[in-house]
């Protein structure tokens, strides 16, 4: 099981890096930023144009293929837009204990970080923080809400 997950992650890494080498410069929405470089305008662009979050399976921290695609776009934008840092916020759903979720959130944030770095983002521009189950995105206690809450959100640093 564990091996499978690792293989999957590795495989995605490979696929992703292939795509980046071929994809650089052909604009996956990454070069469109024309804001004033302020934190809020960067954040708005990230949310609306690039996509600021990726989702995870229960108790998992591996990047699935749709996440990999999103993160690639993110990585391209970050690389092409210097002058800011990002914070990766790791979150979990409420169906776990507080301490474990704090650790799991860190793990998720870190796997996104590793992925971005593997795509060429400068590691010194990335910080991670885990919120465990403390900051859900969706209010409810349904499986839809939970899957919305198992996420890593990219936030522009201060």
């Amino acid at each position: 099981m564990k091996k499978n997950v690792l293989l999957l992650v590795l495989g995605l890494f490979l696929v992703a890096s292939c795509e980046t080498t071929s994809g650089v410069g052909d604009g996956t929405g990454a070069q469109g930023y024309t804001g004033d470089g302020s934190r809020s305008s960067l954040q708005d662009y990230l949310i609306n144009e690039v996509g600021d979050r990726v989702y995870f399976e229960t108790d998992k921290h591996n990047i699935n293929s749709s996440s990999a695609f999103k993160l690639e776009t993110q990585a391209n934008w970050i690389k092409s837009t210097p002058g800011f840092t990002i914070i990766l916020e790791g979150h979990c759903d409420e169906r776990g204990t507080r301490e474990y979720n704090l650790a799991l959130g860190e793990r998720r944030a870190n796997s996104v970080k590793e992925f971005l770095v593997s795509l060429g983002v400068d590691a010194s521009r990335i910080m991670t923080v885990s919120y465990g189950k403390e900051r859900p995105a969706a209010e409810g206690s349904t499986s839809e809400s939970w899957s919305e809450n198992r996420r890593v959100v990219t936030v522009i640093g201060e």
Partner: peptide, 9 residues
């Protein structure tokens, strides 16, 4: 205590 770093706690 726990210390989480680089995806490992």
């Amino acid at each position: 205590m726990s210390l989480a770093r680089e995806g490992n706690t």
